[in-house]
Structures are given as C-alpha cells and as structure tokens.
C-alpha cells in the first residue's frame, strides 16, 4: 500500500507529551485524595479478612453452648460476654461476618449481572425490549425494597425446600441451611437489579449519542463490538460505584431480613439475628453491648461502602481530569 512507503515529512514537528503515569498509580492517587474513602477501604478490608478468617479469629465455635455461663458480662474469656444460651458473643459476631460475606457479594453480583444485562438490552435495542424491561422495573420500584424481599423470601423458602426434598442428592441441603442462603440471595438480587438496570440504560442512551460511537459506526465496526468494546467499558464506572454502594445496602438488607425472622435462621449467626435475639437485653442496662455491637458493625460497613463508592466516583470520572 502507498502508506507504507511514506516517510515522516520534514518540518512536521512531533509534539511532546507529559510523562506517563501508570493508570493504577493514577487511580490510587485520585482515590486517596478522599480520606473517608480510604477509611472505608480499611473497614471493608477488615470485614473481608474477618469473614475469611473467622475459624481462626473466633475463640469459640458459633454453636458452642455453655449453659453454666449464660448472660455473662465481658471478661478475658468472653470479650463481649455470652448470650442466653451461653454462646460467646464475640465469636458469633466474627462468624456472622462470614455469613454477610457470603450473602452480600453474591446478592450484589447476581443483582449487578441482571441489572447490567437488562440495562444494556433496554438501552441498546430500545423499542419494545426497552419498554418491557422498564415497566417491569417500575413495578419492582413501586414496592418498598425490603418488603418485597421479605415477600419473596417468605413465599420462596417453603416451595424451594419442598422442591429440593424431591431429590435424593439435594435432600441434605435443606437440613444444612444452604437453602436459607440461596433464598436470601435470590430475594436480595430480585430487589437489587432494577436500579442498576436504569442506571446502565441511561448510560448507554447518553453514550450512544457520543461522537466516538458515531465514529465507530462510520468505520463499519459491527454492532456487537460497538456494544461490548465501546459502550460497555464507558458505562462501567458508575456501575462500579453502584456495586460498592449496593454492597452496603445488601449487608443492611440481609441483617434486616434476619432481624424480621425471614432469611438466615439460627444457629447460623447473622448480625440481624443477633440483634433480634439480644433484643431482650434492651431493658437490661448491664448488657447493652450485646445489642450495640452487631448494630454498630452493620452501620460502619454501610458507611464504609458508601465512602468507597464516593471515592471511586471521584477517581473514575474521566471528565474530571486533574
């Protein structure tokens, strides 16, 4: 081709560029400007480490009862005292982190996947696909999220268990409590996707008007490639922010479901379950920590993930070039 023979024309000056910073370095530089986001990140990391390492961190098993040592105040043996069945409160708090670490990310991942998929379809195809998905999300939006999750969990649990009992292989699952996890994750995902679908759809709709998408069309780049190589990567930053914020929401929702008695059942420890179980201590000024400790942890995590979301938002915003 003719172009291959061309030499650089003399007199055309090659411009200089500022020194290169690695994208990750650049990301971290921008992220850490938000101090609260860094604090949030530390709290979140602590949560993950605790959840993964709970068997080694917790001094007792979460089921270990000691009826000779019920309702003990904090001591060296039991840093947060014991509950009405003589279970070590601190150990149960640590184990509950594992419960939350299984439920919240799973629910978020499923919800995000659904939201991303539906949002992309609605935004890219438009027309009746868009209308059906959006009306469905309107319906879901019309219910208070928690109430709807409650409804799903309550109706799903018995049917799901019955269905699993039909098969030899799945029978033991019902007893082991895995079903509860599945039900809670399903309920939370079902409630979680519409918001994200709307966000993604809005992103795609506005990105579709960008000149670089028009440029891709002018270059004859196939539609699926435009969708996944050009639209999706540019729509992701707000999605990542939403995932972070969603994590906090999912932790709170899981605790709320357990608090309301739907969802993760005792003896599997859950912060929400601990709060309802320890509710009886509300009037006993001698042991307020039993109520406060799980509540504070949930609150701290919700804040932490929101701060992370704020930090990500600032660090990922390409319009804000500083």
């Amino acid at each position: 081709m003719a172009q291959a023979q061309l030499e650089m024309k003399p007199g055309v000056r090659v411009d200089l560029l500022p020194p290169r910073r690695h994208p990750l370095t650049e990301f971290w530089r921008r992220y850490r400007r938000n101090r609260l986001a860094v604090v949030g990140l530390v709290i979140a990391l602590l949560f993950v480490v605790t959840g993964i390492g709970s068997p080694w961190i917790a001094p007792y098993s979460y089921t270990e009862q000691n009826l000779d040592a019920v309702e003990l105040p904090p001591s060296w043996a039991h840093p947060l005292g014991t509950d009405d069945l003589g279970r070590d409160q601190f150990s149960r708090l640590v184990w509950a982190a594992r419960t939350a670490l299984i439920v919240a990310p799973s629910a978020t991942v499923v919800g995000v996947t659904l939201g991303l998929l539906f949002g992309l379809m609605a935004g890219y195809f438009g027309g009746w696909v868009d209308r059906i998905i959006m009306r469905l999300s309107d319906v879901l939006f019309a219910f208070p999220g928690l109430l709807f999750a409650l409804l799903i969990a309550a109706t799903l649990q018995p049917r799901f268990e019955q269905w699993l009992l039909q098969f030899e292989v799945t029978k033991p699952w019902v007893r082991s409590g895995y079903v509860e996890f599945l039900v809670v994750i399903t309920a939370l995902s079902a409630v979680g996707w519409p918001g994200l679908a709307r966000l993604v759809r809005g992103q795609i709709l506005s990105l579709r008007e960008e000149p670089f998408i028009e440029a891709a069309e002018a270059l004859g780049i196939p539609a699926h490639r435009i969708l996944f190589r050009h639209l999706l990567p540019n729509a992701l930053p707000p999605v990542i922010v939403a995932i972070s914020m969603g994590m906090g929401g999912a932790i709170l929702a899981e605790a709320s479901l357990s608090f309301l008695g739907i969802g993760i059942q005792p003896p599997t420890p859950s912060w929400g379950g601990m709060i309802i179980n320890n509710f009886q201590y509300w009037r006993k000024p001698s042991a307020p920590w039993m109520l406060w400790a799980p509540g504070l942890i949930v609150a701290a995590l919700v804040f932490a993930f929101n701060f992370i979301g704020d930090g990500l938002n600032e660090a990922l915003n390409p319009r804000d070039q500083r």
């Binding site: 960008e210 000149p211 670089f212 028009e214 440029a215 891709a216 002018a218 270059l219 004859g220 780049i221 196939p222 490639r225 190589r229 050009h230 990567p233 540019n234 390409p318």
Partner: peptide
C-alpha cells in the same frame, strides 16, 4: 470516512491510540 469536530468526544476515552487507529484494520 469522516473526521469529526470535537477531538475530545470523538475518541473513545477507554481505548489507547493503538486501539483506536488499529480497530478498523482489524474489523475489516
């Protein structure tokens, strides 16, 4: 082909220069 007005908005911000200029070569 087409050359666009806005040199900021007409290049995909998440692709490298190599990706932007090389993509048409690849897809065709």
């Amino acid at each position: 082909q087409m050359i666009f007005q806005d040199p900021y908005a007409s290049l995909n911000p998440r692709m490298t220069v190599g990706g932007i200029v090389g993509e048409p070569l690849e897809v065709h």
